[in-house]
Design a protein around this nucleic acid. Structure first.
Lengths: 348, 348
DNA sequence: TTGTAAGCGTTATCAG
DNA sequence: CTGATAACGCTTACAA
């Protein structure tokens, strides 16, 4: 402490205007020279705010979402957005689903660390632990997860529209026998992509056939099996919309093993636009989700809720876009390998 | 406070043994009923320990490692390991590479939040900010990053041995003209994989040809271009070791476009075993890195350093394994699509 | 076995 | 404009 009182230092560091310009400079310089950094813990203790946002990202043993490249990008978007406002991210560890109300339930950990808000991803909306959290008074936002509450909103891609874009694209290419391999219908994206498929068929005046709907779970084997079943039909489809890229690759594999050529004999559209889509052979036509954008939107939602505590929790839907590659249009994508980004896109 | 003093409650909650069994029960029950959770900030303030581990994961704009599925898995491993010991993870946000010594240098943020240790991933070991951190007295561990310091160690895959396994495998298949497409030689993995390639050639008595070494950068286009250059040689290789799976896929694409069949005309081995390797067509023979294991090892290293502050910082090398699939052996993998895990592996 | 009290590093409310 | 001083919620000697 060189010269001035501890209280004044606090004023300077917090940008209060009631401090002499000269004093301010002196303190600031010293702070810089000493590499002084205020202690977050003490500040949190007295202000009751931590400038930290909790992230619940379920990745339990055997939980498949760990494989999903999805969350990594969402995290990046979230991190960027809230980082700009001075927030850091706290990842809740030991997600070993405890007895729910244990000492390390999500809610308790949130209070323990005094996080100002929480982002939820990859969890089950019906999990009681999650519900306890979303019905608390801590601002929450679900990503790809339709949780709601007094202080809980969510962000999600326009899955319905994405499915419609996929079907419309196939129809425009002349297909009329269009099948679907769905995602898990216990998830919102799984349901919405099926709804969109159905709605677009109807809009186009195409018949909806139960035989053309195969339930999958977003993973490769279910795409593979679903396609096999479809090809066993008396009148197999000429086009398939798979509710995930990974299932689309599975479907293509099954078709190729039966000697079908993609896209000549069978057109396939995926969903997500993960890295794999670009590198697959044939490259995948797919519905692109803006993963980083979802994270950023989640951050936005939380920051807004923190700013205006009594505004209703925002619910945000992000647009998706159709990316046309070789799995629907032969040669669509020539040269992408070298030029990255030569795909044709169509914005919703 | 029902019955007993605040100090006693603290004793109970911290498992001190000098408290009456009866009192303990009473307090414990009450704590449970009231869902009481001690405030981390207050505890940190007095104990000077936070039970939080900082994670520096660089994902700046345009930084390609964002695409790498690698870090996500590492994070999961780290999270599980340290979570078991009651630690949470703090992700440092706003990685906008500031002036280095700014108010939010990594070091300052670490001190600000009082993190007990730091894990570093995806950063440049030569970054002065990183060096300031690793030369502080905060325990650090680099993942795939050979940083060292008084309190800094690292964990890394056995890249050298992985490259040797790849070359040996190709040689066992009868190949003698074996080329390599390297990773960035500014990174430790990039260098070590090249060293291993060279060492194994020598061990096998095969000649080392400059023409057979193409510098890549771990990404698809460089694998594609590298392969083209190799095929333009008077005596092109019959086998290629690519230092990443993504480059391997690029190499395969280039070969296929020239009408070569993989593996009959050209055998390809990748490195990493990302999800793509299994789903590519042909499925990729590759060197598997234990990504989750790297994260866990990093956690282990940090926990050990926290436990014994004056032990030397651990440096851990994790074994890798060869996973044989279709890009080197035709039909190696028949049925994997359905049965997941039908690959043949060979442990180092 | 338990209570009292000091102190961790801040911010915030008063007086000056 | 600035300095005391009381919190903030805990842990930890030191007493009792």
């Amino acid at each position: 402490m060189s010269g001035v009182s501890i209280a004044t230092v606090s004023r300077v560091l917090n940008d209060y205007d009631d401090v002499a310009a000269e004093t301010r400079e002196r303190v600031l310089k010293l702070a810089r020279d000493l590499e002084y950094t205020p202690t977050a813990a003490a500040r949190t203790l007295v202000t009751q705010r931590s400038r930290v946002i909790g992230v619940v990202l379920f990745t339990g043993e055997g939980h498949p979402d760990l494989q999903h490249p999805f969350f990594q990008e969402v995290l990046v978007g979230l991190k960027h957005r809230v980082g700009g406002s001075g927030y850091d991210l706290l990842l809740f560890a030991n997600d070993v689903s405890e007895n729910g109300t244990g000492a390390n339930s999500y809610l308790n950990r949130s209070r323990h660390h005094h996080v100002d808000a929480v982002a939820l991803m990859g969890v089950d909306a019906r999990d009681p632990e999650v519900q306890r959290l979303t019905s608390s008074n801590i601002p929450c936002v679900g990503v790809d997860l339709d949780v709601i509450g007094r202080r809980t909103g969510y962000v999600i891609s326009d899955n319905d529209e994405g499915a419609r874009l996929a079907v419309r694209h196939l129809h425009e290419l002349g297909h009329t026998r269009i099948a679907v391999i769905t995602g898990m219908t216990t998830t919102r994206p799984g349901v919405d992509r099926l709804i969109g498929y159905r709605a677009e068929l109807e809009a186009l005046g195409l018949p909806y056939l139960d035989d053309y709907v195969r339930e999958g779970d977003f993973y490769f084997p279910s795409g593979y099996a679903g396609m096999q079943a479809l090809l066993d039909l008396d009148e197999p489809p000429t086009a398939v919309f798979a509710a995930s890229d990974v299932m689309a690759v599975g479907a293509i594999r099954a078709a190729q093993e039966r000697g079908l050529r993609v896209p000549q004999d069978l057109a396939v559209v995926g969903f997500d636009d993960i890295q794999l889509a670009q590198l697959a052979h044939p490259a995948l036509t797919t519905i692109r989700q803006d993963k980083v954008g979802l994270g950023a939107a989640a951050g936005d939602a939380l920051l807004r809720m923190l700013e205006r505590p009594d505004a209703p929790p925002p619910v945000t839907t992000l647009p998706v876009e159709l990316v046309v590659r070789e799995s629907t249009v032969a040669g669509a994508n020539r040269g992408e390998a070298r030029a990255q980004g030569g795909e044709s896109r169509k914005r919703r």
